[in-house]
Design a protein around this nucleic acid. Structure first.
Lengths: 343, 343
DNA sequence: CTGAAAGCGCTTACAG
DNA sequence: CTGAAAGCGCTTACAG
């Protein structure tokens, strides 16, 4: 039935060890035997059994990818395919396969990760998110298992290899951009603060205000939850303030789309009456009306580099801890207006 | 170091076989021994080694998911996360894991699939696409390996278990819908005809015209390639015909967005001057201007059912071949206009 | 209800 | 440069 290394050995008149070494392209085997063995392998249509090889070699040549099946906007539709593409590109180049998490809740995901590492299903793990007080991350860190995160860790930042955008800096930059356009009243519609990315962007926003000598006002900050539950109301209250904002920073393009829609219902025009910028530059942001000014965060890169980092750690357990911020670019479209001299 | 079944056996005063049976929850083991063994397992923090179990049991408890890294619109961003979610939901419920393909070209994907089946990396495979004359599909069919497709197979339809939308019927329905609104001049902007989904939708369009006693006109059909290379031109020529269409059917929402954008540049208004319907109902289609009328194809369901079918086949090799069309719904928004009585 | 033994298909010191 | 042997950590007839 299935042809094994032993069949090949017999047919090629060598020992199984030799066949094994030919598969691994061991330099200590003569070219001649290699040729002969390879011929037989082809002729017999031999394929190495993955499980057997993994068991004997104590490695799996696969990496685990853990996705947050949460409601986090940042990890909704458009993000996922792109990180995966980045991960696949790097993994494929190094002949690694990908094992994807399937769990839907935090608990399920935690259990999966434990069984991946304890059960030796994978050689390393990529966490596709960074959340506050994450048990899974702590477990991974304590188990000394090779892993990488896409996102700045909430804790133990100096002990964990990760990749991210410099979310604090880019949020700061976005606010500065609005300053340049003459805006002083800038609201912020945040993401789920369970995720570090949301905290960081909010932090950058606050810092930018501070650096400009403006004070942060609570009524200019709409919390993720508030937005989700009573979206329209929160926007309504925001725009009915004595000093309504002239610009809004949204945590994500999807959020921005919804905001624009509600503003419309209130007959508030973007960018005539209020400007809007957001993050993540979804593929469709060029098509909405008005085309959205947004920060491109290089999602592919994020996945690609995270995998490179991980593979380094897998191949060299004492590789140093590394961080890298993937550069971003503000894509100016038509959702912001220069109000210098108008106001 | 790593605690094995033998350590557990010793500690629990039973044989390794018994421990193994406890893990499998074999009914022939007494509840008492089970309790004792389980206690020891917990105490020793024992976790079964995945690779060893797979090798001995000749099963992997994982399914391979093959994605088409092509340019096929149907498998672009918004589709992928949703099918995956459907697949994960079903797989997780049956305690199966997911192994994802990483290849970027047809050849790479083919090689991966071969190594997945020959190398026994997975117990079954889901093909997330259906393309014309696909070597990978033929290989899978000939190898008798359990697999399922999301998409109607180009050939051997009666021999392959698959799940799909009834793309011919829904395209037919969409055209009928436009008929009801009074349209008689209906253009079709197709997808990549390498994919069966594109062929089917085009087929449904043609059939609908025929059934209504209208004849199919080549100048009303814009081929995927033509559209991609000289998008604007092709739309321009279309609208400059003696009898320009009053309605356009687009193969996918992303295509529709682009069409709308070009029409705008030509100062042609949707739906005032021309109506537009498309397929796939991307999450963002409610946000574009005008909100897009589109067919929701139940992507989650597609992934979920495909996995159910596959798992059936994996667990029972002589399960019958099955097909199922997942129902769809036309989401009416604001991109179509009723022109009855106008002309 | 439980155990001893063989085996799943490889890899890798060790020896020559 | 190559082989014999042990071992990776399980499962599963077979026997009792």
């Amino acid at each position: 039935m299935t042809v094994t290394i032993i069949d090949v050995a017999r047919e090629a008149n060598v020992s199984p060890s030799t066949v094994s070494r030919v598969i691994a392209d061991n330099p200590r085997i003569s070219e001649q035997t290699k040729r002969k063995v390879r011929e037989v392998m082809e002729q017999l249509e031999y394929y190495p059994n993955f499980q057997a090889r993994n068991l004997a070699a104590k490695s799996t040549k696969t990496i685990g990818v853990i996705m947050s099946h949460s409601t986090s906007l940042a990890f909704q539709n458009p993000f996922f395919p792109e990180v995966i593409r980045g991960i696949c590109t790097s993994a494929h180049a190094s002949q690694y396969g990908i094992y994807l998490s399937t769990g839907a809740t935090e608990e399920e995901i935690y259990q999966e990760v434990v069984s991946m590492v304890q059960g030796r299903k994978v050689d390393g793990i990529i966490l596709l998110y960074s959340r506050v007080n994450d048990r899974t991350m702590t477990y991974l860190k304590d188990s000394k298992f090779p892993f990488t995160m896409v996102g700045r860790p909430y804790k133990y930042e100096s002990e964990i290899t990760y990749i991210d955008n410099d979310n604090r800096a880019i949020a700061h930059d976005v606010v500065d951009y609005l300053f340049q356009l003459g805006h002083r009243h800038i609201a912020f519609i945040g993401g789920n603060l369970e995720f570090v990315v949301s905290m960081d962007r909010l932090g950058g926003y606050k810092q930018a205000l501070k650096d400009a000598g403006l004070s942060y006002a609570d009524e200019y900050f709409i919390h993720d939850n508030a937005f989700k539950s009573k979206e329209k109301n929160s926007i309504y209250s925001l725009m009915k303030l004595d000093k309504p904002p002239t610009a809004i920073v949204a945590h994500d393009d999807l959020v921005a789309y919804e905001v624009i829609r509600y503003l419309e219902e209130l007959s508030i025009q973007v960018p005539q009456n209020v400007s809007i910028v957001s993050f993540n530059n979804h593929a469709l942001s060029a098509y909405v009306k008005p085309p959205l000014t947004s920060v491109d965060i290089s999602i592919f890169e994020l996945g690609f580099e995270a995998t490179n980092f991980l593979l380094e750690k897998v191949q060299d357990p004492k590789a140093t801890v590394k961080h890298h911020f993937v550069p971003t670019t503000l894509i100016e479209r038509e959702s912001c207006r220069n109000i210098n001299g108008f106001g």
